[in-house]
């Protein structure tokens, strides 16, 4: 399986994306902002279709759209980020705009499938270069802000009193989420960003590990699920996104079941 260039590229891309999605998702789930990240991926979809229309790469549009939406969401604060209705509205309008752009595109069908459900086997070496850059930037950013972000997440009032800039962190974090979302969509598609972003992180958070161990474990589990999905799809001919989604759901349920049994 590793004899093929596109498979080696796929494994590398999955590594780069999983290492970012795990830890970013860990904070996302802890902060209760998973729905916000879902909306970001949909705004990214509108951005990607818009970029295709202009003849740009979809990754540029995805990252640009999600980043703009993430920063705006962070600036608006709890007025938007914490409100289901507002996020739902943003999400549906973005999807609608994406649908319009797709309609205006001539080669819409294949582009739509790749954007919505991912196309990990179609990742080009050039795109891989971009993923390296984005992943390195994301991990560096998260490494710098992890400590105050953890404090601000667990004890916002105390953190504010100690001089932690809450709103700046909120904006920076949502910007990180936006970039991670754009990366993740390359593998799982915008509709299934949850599978790598939220499922491994939520599974790990159930374990009650210490923060640093949890961040590491989330990266590890995301990587295992992404590679597992690739391998399973190689042997079964089912889409990679399907297997990653299934593994994510199964992992979450299994950990829950194991805890139930142990609690008895």
């Amino acid at each position: 399986m590793l004899d093929y260039d596109f498979m080696r590229t796929a494994f590398l891309a999955a590594l780069l994306v999983a290492l970012v999605c795990g830890p970013v998702g860990w904070f996302l789930v802890l902060r209760g902002q998973t729905f916000a990240s879902h909306a970001l991926s949909h705004v990214g979809f509108a951005g990607a279709t818009g970029a295709l229309m202009l003849g740009l790469s979809p990754l540029t549009g995805l990252a640009g759209g999600a980043l703009a939406a993430g920063i705006l969401m962070g600036l608006a604060g709890d007025r938007v980020a914490g409100r289901d209705v507002m996020i739902g509205l943003v999400l549906s309008v973005a999807m609608g705009v994406g649908a319009l752009f797709l309609h205006l595109l001539t080669r819409s069908a294949s582009a739509a499938t790749a954007l919505l459900f991912g196309d990990i086997l179609g990742i080009s070496p050039g795109m891989l270069g971009w993923l390296v850059l984005l992943s390195a930037g994301c991990l560096l950013g998260l490494g710098i802000m992890a400590r105050p972000l953890l404090f601000a997440t667990l004890q916002p009032e105390m953190a504010e009193a100690k001089g932690v800039p809450l709103q700046l962190l909120d904006v920076l974090f949502l910007a990180l989420v936006a970039i991670a979302t754009a990366e993740c969509a390359q593998i799982t598609g915008v509709l299934l960003v949850f599978t790598l972003m939220v499922a491994p992180a939520a599974t790990v958070l159930r374990l009650g590990l210490s923060p640093l161990a949890g961040l590491g474990a989330a990266a590890g589990l995301a990587l295992a699920e992404a590679w597992g999905g690739l391998i399973l799809s190689w042997y079964t001919d089912c889409p990679t996104s399907f297997w990653i989604a299934l593994l994510g759901g199964a992992g979450f349920l299994l950990v829950g079941l194991a805890q139930r049994l142990r609690a008895r």
Partner: peptide, 17 residues
């Protein structure tokens, strides 16, 4: 322990190490 530790120099940038 982890909860209390999260406030230790929580205003400093970096990892929670």
């Amino acid at each position: 322990w982890s909860m209390v530790a999260s406030a230790l120099h929580g205003q400093r940038w970096g990892l929670p190490w």
